[in-house]
Amino acid sequence: PDSPLARWTKSLHSLLGDQDGAHLFRTFLEREKCVDTLDFWFACNGFRQMDLQDTKTLRVAKAIYKRYIENNSIVAKQLKPATKTYIRDSIKKQQIDSAMFDQAQTEIQATMEENAYQMFLTSDIYLEYV
């Protein structure tokens, strides 16, 4: 009952907390050309754990912004304009906060749960693994 596969179908969160699950989901998203959404999700988690005193943290915030939000990438398209503006302004003012990507991550996660995650659970990549 508590096999990895049972956990994967429980929630997106359980899937992403499992190494094999996250890896398989990533392979699926690569094929669907939306792997950036998953990388962004993990980047948000990684960023939240960073030390705000470390000068590296501002550089990482800028890197996340540049790579996923500033351009018209798949992540940017799924975010609300207000969310993007908030992050842009925080970076501009160099007001770095551990929670500054939380809202964006929540929005991306909701979209993943509704779309990619459901598609994954019926995909041949998943069914073959099962």
Partner: peptide, 20 residues
Amino acid sequence: IDSEDDLLQECISSAMPKKK
């Protein structure tokens, strides 16, 4: 100094689930 890409990659990797 690490490049921006390296920093981003490091950040993503740090959040990935580890082997059990």
